[in-house]
């Protein structure tokens, strides 16, 4: 599509993470907050490694 350049994906993801935590904090499943925070940190790691697909196997091995 003929499109304008999107804002930086990482900033948008950060916004999504914030919205998710806020949604949980204001709902009945607030107790899931620490678990979801933990998962988001792991997700950030996964996304970071996946953003270097050619060397990802080496990064995984190093970890």
């Amino acid at each position: 599509m003929n499109q304008p350049p999107p804002p930086r994906a990482w900033l948008l993801r950060l916004g999504t993470a914030g919205a998710l935590l806020s949604m949980l904090a204001h709902g009945s499943r607030w107790w899931m907050l620490p678990l979801v925070l933990f998962l988001l940190v792991m997700g950030a790691g996964l996304l970071f490694v996946a953003s270097f697909p050619y060397v990802a196997p080496f990064i995984y091995t190093a970890i």
Binding site: L35, F38, L39, G45, P53, Y54, A56, P57, Y60
Partner: peptide
Amino acid sequence: WLRFSSDFGALMGGFWLGLAYVVGV
């Protein structure tokens, strides 16, 4: 190589997330 990298990533990601399941969930 990218296919291998992706499959390997799924395997390693699965390992770490499996660990997260035990200690986190």
